[in-house]
Design a protein around this nucleic acid. Structure first.
Lengths: 271, 271
DNA sequence: GAGTGGTCTAGACCACTTG
DNA sequence: AAGTGGTCTAGACCACTCC
């Protein structure tokens, strides 16, 4: 099965027209799966390949070796190997071309951003984030909120308003509406962590979000809350977040100080 | 093959303990593949299911019927049916739960936005877009541009500056840098279509983009170009676009009138 | 023509959810 | 216990790319 090829050992008995055309490239690259593990085989392989790419052991542009050979080397079937490779293609780490092979993507495409959480973003950037909850009550859904959350107009929804600080400076004013009864929206926890983290720990699997990002000049009231001057440029975002069943779980209308914050994210083109 | 079942014809000869437990839900829903077509079978099935969901013939939340039965009904193998279903799960139209089944997502998640092209956005919105090319030359890459495009600092890159109008009003100032020799960047075509459309027709397959969206006040020069007043809020975007091999194919630094434009897009959470 | 990925089949066993 | 999706196998033929 996984007999390693002699690489460039000259074979004196036969004279092939061309010397071994160096089929290498995923050279030795120790790969191997653990069949006693509960982790799926395709997932183990995908992890190992991803790690190898990340560490540069698989150089950008290098070919991966064909699927059949890889399957044989690992003692896996071809569909399983394909499943592993496909998951990395979906992540943008590998490219497949028929008749050519599978190669590591050229370039420095870094890990795509998740659904961005301001709290996590700030924490990752080393800015010590803090939150002050201004309101945490129940209100009746306006037409706009009802449409966004998919509830009847006038139905009860949670209203949460927060000021987010970084280094004791206000950065953003966050206003969220959530369906009631979705999870326990405790004010104390809201002040010590982010909304998305609370949702995840409540067993909600976030799936997608529809966002609208714009800008406008600060009103007097907004300026005061954010310690800007009236007319200062503000970044605005409206976002409706859906879980994996397609339910809307959150509708946010946020305002950021443009002088302090910008959105970074990655878009994938769906063919 | 696709012999239609008698549905609810009572069978007088046998008396099942329970009357047909209504296994329905993808009720009659005429499905069928064309094996003479060059279109892959899984793709044909996915298209039909997607169309049925879109037209409401498969209601949100309804179960799809198990894979084996579906495969039998269509004369396909289970892996092929799974491939079709998986593609719709990836699109966010279906949800699978082990032990439960596959159901249509609850809610109105509309088609996710593609990598947004301002030109296409405006055209779709019925605003007749127009473009004036201000510059279309070659320059030497600054450190920032070189880093974004992955070329050596000082290397030659294409510089394109455009004003984009809607209804004869300026909407945005677009500045792009591109690797030289990527495709023919003709000024006349630039004025009559969008950059992305030109890339696609040159055989470049767009794959992903890294974006940064912010806001700031207009300088005097910017205000004049966009017929705003100095200090007016502007929406800014920096975007590096990559093709399917991971090459950077474009680096854009754009400015939009916040009074006229906002970004809308969909983010997917990668598990 | 040789080699690659793209598609497809007909089975199999397991883990999970539900009654 | 029954039914579902999740994983896996060992083959097969085709379309495309490159020599």
């Amino acid at each position: 099965m996984s007999s390693q090829q002699p690489e460039s050992a000259p074979r004196p008995d036969s004279a092939p027209p061309t010397p071994p055309p160096t089929p290498l490239t995923p050279p030795q690259l120790q790969l191997g799966v653990d069949r006693t593990s509960p982790v799926p085989l395709y997932f183990q392989l995908a992890q190992q390949l991803e790690a190898a790419i990340e560490r540069g052991r698989l150089a950008p542009g290098s070919l991966l070796g064909n699927e059949i050979e890889l399957a044989g080397r690992l003692g896996l079937s071809r569909p399983t190997v394909r499943q592993a490779i496909q998951s990395l293609v979906d992540k943008g780490l590998l490219v497949r071309r028929r008749g050519v092979g599978t190669q590591v993507v050229h370039s420095q495409v870094k890990r795509p951003l998740e659904l961005s959480s301001l709290y996590d973003d700030l924490e990752a950037a080393g800015q010590r984030p803090a939150t002050r909850v201004l309101r945490n009550t129940v209100e009746q859904a306006t037409a706009e909120v009802a449409a966004a959350l998919g509830v009847p107009q006038g139905a009860e929804v949670l209203l949460v308003e927060r000021l987010r600080y970084a280094h004791d400076e206000p950065m953003a004013f966050l206003r969220n509406r959530l369906p009631v009864g979705l999870f326990d929206c405790d004010t104390e926890r809201l002040e010590s962590t982010g909304l998305y983290r609370m949702m995840r720990s409540a067993g909600i699997t976030l799936h997608s979000a529809r966002q609208k990002v714009g800008a406008r000049a600060a009103t007097a009231e907004e300026a005061e809350r954010l310690t800007e001057h009236p007319g200062a440029p503000l970044l605005t975002m409206e976002r409706t977040t859906f879980d994996d069943t397609g339910r809307a779980v959150e509708f946010g209308s946020h305002i950021y100080r443009a002088s302090r914050y910008a959105f970074e994210f990655q878009l994938l083109v769906r063919p």
